[in-house]
């Protein structure tokens, strides 16, 4: 459920097809995001999940799996 939403947001924001996404994919190296894309992506997660992701946490997020793990902990799923 949470994974599905994360995949959808990444797919919409970065224009990458959902079936190309997997937890090991790196946002910048594998999915072609630049630093501004990542900022916008983080904003979208904050909106969708009603959480605040501080900059120091955001800096640690590199892969799709990192996002899922972080959000699971934050949302408490």
């Amino acid at each position: 459920m949470l994974e599905e939403k994360v995949y959808q947001i990444i797919s919409d924001q970065l224009g990458v097809e959902k079936d190309k996404l997997s937890p090991d994919k790196k946002l910048i190296e594998d999915l072609g995001a630049d630093s501004l894309d990542v900022v916008e992506l983080i904003m979208a997660f904050e909106e969708e999940f009603g959480v605040e992701i501080p900059d120091e946490d955001a800096e640690k997020i590199q892969t799709v799996g990192d996002i899922i793990a972080y959000l699971k902990e934050k949302v408490g799923e």
Binding site: L36, V39, E40, M43, E46, E47, E52
Partner: peptide, 10 residues
Amino acid sequence: ARRVSPFFIP
């Protein structure tokens, strides 16, 4: 402020 688009300026 945290919702202002990073693409707004560029």
